[in-house]
Amino acid sequence: MKRVRRSKREALTGEHLDAEALYRAHADFVARFLLRLGAHGQDVPDLLQEVFLVAHRRGGFVRDRAKPTTWLAEISFRVFSDRRKKSRRKLEDADTETIAMAPSQASSPSERTEKREALARVQSALDTLTPEKRAVFVLYELEGESCDSIAQGLGIPVGTVYSRLHSARRDFARAHDRIVEETRSTPGTSREVVAGARA
């Protein structure tokens, strides 16, 4: 824990962050981002390694480039879309560790269930976006990055960020409405919706 905190400070002041420092400060962020892009939980540990190895091969993060987070987001996006293209998942290996998003603290089991369902609805709605829009939407709406920093990190004009965000919001809201409707008529299906969307 201590180590993590220290490297966060380094992250703020340092000029250069090598792969390990990046990992300590941002592995969480990258794993979340990969999951929200649609990576399967069992693939996340490997994808995560891949992302930081690419960061390593690029010589680490240098301060004049965007922010470490959005810089890593760009690498994550590449690694993820590449993996998705190149390979088809084999049957799941039950032994592999699985990473998932879990609700923050809940005071009761029912609240926890409700929160889980909310996460499932959000993920299902995200899954309907194109990968490009999804990346921008996640970074802006869920990670709180600014449009500028997203533009720099992803290497696209800020105008493109705005337009992707705009249409991502529209798509997301539509999908979300639909999912809410569906789960209202048949309660308990939100998880299946997610599973279906990812299959």
Partner: peptide
Amino acid sequence: SLRADLARAADARLEGLDLDAGLERLRTAT
């Protein structure tokens, strides 16, 4: 309902990731 769901998603945390093991693996690899 959209805002509520997004708030929960933004608030969610990661579960099941062994950061230490990942760091060690990264070190070995690099």
